[in-house]
Write a protein that binds this DNA or RNA. Structure first.
Length: 574
RNA sequence: CGGGGUAUAGCGCAGCUUGGUAGCGCGCCUGCCUUGGGAGCAGGAGGCCGGGGGUUCGAAUCCCUCUGCCCCGACCA
């Protein structure tokens, strides 16, 4: 490809709308342009990167016995009503009607469609296991699309669904996908970590792992062990109570005046006590139920754990101040567990029962209780692990301190079990003629998001540094002296030769000064740069530059093709 | 969905307070010049100042309203 003909509009300045580096660079390097919030056009170079990742994904899926299909983006409402998700999925589902007023949605995922397919086509255990996948656009009306391709409303995803005879089969399929995912992200040149995760609204019974690309701009917090291979999404990570050694004798609850004091910080300051002596009391609303949640003042409540512990609500949120007023007769800043209404369930984090002389709200504006002994002075109905783990705590597996990192979720593997096969009657006959439900798994990779993740991880002040396997082109040739006939002709000749040897190469044939070409090449991030200048060429040499290491070498014209192919070959090994 | 911000040329921005019919840098087009890290000079094209309504002799500027976009939060296969 000739750069003069390529639709690759590079920008000198950072677009005002782009916040994170990958978004900025994708726009500046001329890979994408926005059409509407969360919707993007991929320009030629951006699309080439996407296709490269797709190819890697396809190869690895096929290698594990996956069969590619293509399901419709438009999905009939009936299937979603059959699974129960038409109502549960909420506003994130793009819904529309056809001319006959029949309801449809744009697929955010395809469990419904695929399970409907399988229930019609699979009859016998002999057909199992079956692994079906597609690479297709998904639609989710995110409340807040952001960061360019990182969180769009339309994005390309690979989704594979596995159907097995039993749990053991599912475990095998799951492991296959887990292994395939490791290969895929390694091949893409990404530094990633599989982490234990929460199954979320997609449901399912077994474990689940998320594949996190480690990057500071990631929207997820990950904890990992400094001593072993334990790693988990922070919202999933279990913890043990850290008991505070308090030797003071237990006392009687005393009501103290705390005028105008509402937040944890204010209470601590007013009473000169540390945060970990406070019982933070939060009134929560789960669907129609209300309950009081207790957690130590220095801890953060993990709502995911709370929702899991209490059986999974569709909607779980802090009760509105009016609700707090109605049930407890005070504002949110004064809530406490003492003398709450009989019917109000009180759930506490595991650390609460270990507290000895605690401080808590008095359900009365301007007052708090001190010297409170949990369980003794107030009722606790149920105790769970409800808090967010904190960096530095001991790993539950090996005891070494945990560390925290930010991660971008580029893939997730789920064990679904029979949730959907049961709802849809996707059954088969086993060798005894017995009817059984397929045991399912589902496995997704955000292909568009992986591009953003790759850039987050591979860039410098000058631009993108593509890992060779996903670079839009492997090599760029820059004739630095555009007036030198020798330079121009040699560049042309090398361009043709490299092309004929299967190297993905562009020739910057624009009538620009060398500096402009260098800047653009660095910005776009071509892994190998071949530069031809009058002086070096007079000695029969051209310069090869590695974008990543910044190393340059002078090579005889006759050896360029061989050397470039060498560099590519090396960079493609993993 | 709550809170905040913003909308002026392809991109980045000024002008708005105190109304008088639009400007700067980059990019783009022509020519000269230059040619190893976003050069220089000269000339040029390009805008219904997000949409609608109002106030006014007159609105980019003041008022009302709608919309888009961005950020924070909540939410999230």
């Amino acid at each position: 490809m000739l750069v003069s003909q390529l639709l690759n509009p590079t920008l000198r300045e950072v677009p005002a709308e782009a916040e994170v580096i990958s978004h900025q660079l994708m726009v500046r390097a001329g890979l994408i342009r926005k059409s509407a919030s969360g919707f993007y056009t991929l320009l030629p170079l951006g699309l080439r990167v996407l296709r490269k990742i797709e190819t890697i994904v396809r190869e690895e899926m096929d290698a594990k016995g996956g069969q590619e299909i293509l399901m419709p983006i438009m999905q009939p409402a009936e299937l979603w009503k059959e699974s129960g998700r038409w109502d549960v999925y909420g506003a994130e589902l793009f819904r529309l009607k056809d001319r006959h007023n029949r309801e449809f949605c744009l697929g955010p995922t395809h469990e419904e469609i695929i399970t409907d397919l399988i229930r019609g086509e699979v009859r016998s255990y002999k057909q199992l296991p079956m692994l079906l996948y597609q690479i297709q656009n998904k639609y989710r009306d995110e409340r807040r699309p952001r960061f360019g391709l990182m969180r769009g409303r339309e994005f390309l995803m690979k989704d594979l669904y596995s159907f097995d005879r039993d749990e053991a089969g599912l475990q095998e399929s799951y492991q296959k996908m887990y292994d395939a995912y490791c290969r895929i992200f390694s091949r893409c040149g990404l530094s990633y970590r599989p982490v234990e995760a929460d199954a979320g609204a997609i449901g399912g019974t077994g474990g689940t792992h998320e594949f996190m690309v480690l990057a500071d701009s990631g929207e997820n917090s990950v904890v990992y062990c400094s001593g072993c291979d334990y790693a988990a999404n922070m919202e999933k990570s279990e913890c043990r109570p850290q008991v505070i050694d308090d030797v003071s004798p237990e006392g009687q609850p005393k009501l103290v005046a705390t005028p105008g004091v509402k937040t944890i910080d204010e209470v601590c300051e007013h009473l000169t006590v540390p945060q970990n002596t406070l019982v933070k009391s939060l009134l929560y609303q789960g669907d129609e139920k209300t309950f009081l949640v207790l957690i130590r003042g220095d801890r953060t409540l993990n709502e995911i754990k709370l929702n899991n512990a209490l059986g999974g609500f569709v909607s779980l949120q802090l009760a509105a101040p009016e609700q707090v007023e109605k049930i407890l007769g005070c504002g949110p800043g004064s809530v406490g567990p003492i003398e709450v209404p009989e019917g109000l369930m009180v759930v506490a984090d595991e650390e609460i029962p270990f507290m000895k002389r605690a401080v808590c709200g008095a359900n009365k504006a301007g007052y708090h209780y001190v010297d409170v002994v949990p369980s003794h002075d107030f009722r606790i109905d149920q105790v769970f692990d409800l808090r967010m783990v904190e960096p530095g705590e001991a790993c539950l597996k090996c005891g070494a301190p945990l560390k925290e990192a930010r991660g971008i979720e580029v893939g997730q593997v789920f064990k679904l079990g029979t949730k959907y096969s049961k709802a849809f009657g996707a059954t088969f006959l086993d060798e005894n003629g017995e009817e059984k439900c397929c045991v399912m798994g589902c496995y997704g990779i955000g292909v568009t998001r992986s591009i953003a993740a790759a850039i987050e991880q591979n860039h410098d002040d000058f631009g993108i540094i593509w890992p060779m396997p996903i670079a839009p082109y492997q090599c760029i040739i820059i004739p630095a002296s555009a007036k030198d006939v020798q330079v121009v002709e040699t560049a042309q000749k090398l361009y043709k030769e490299l092309q004929s040897q299967g190297v993905e190469v562009v020739l910057d044939d624009r009538d620009e000064r060398a500096g402009v070409k260098f800047k653009d090449a660095d910005l776009v991030g071509y892994p190998i740069r071949v530069t031809l200048g009058s002086k070096t060429l007079a000695n029969g040499q051209v310069e090869l530059k590695d974008r990543k290491s910044n190393e340059t070498q002078l090579v005889l014209v006759a050896d360029v093709v061989k050397q470039v192919k060498n560099m590519i070959e090396q960079a493609l090994q993993f």
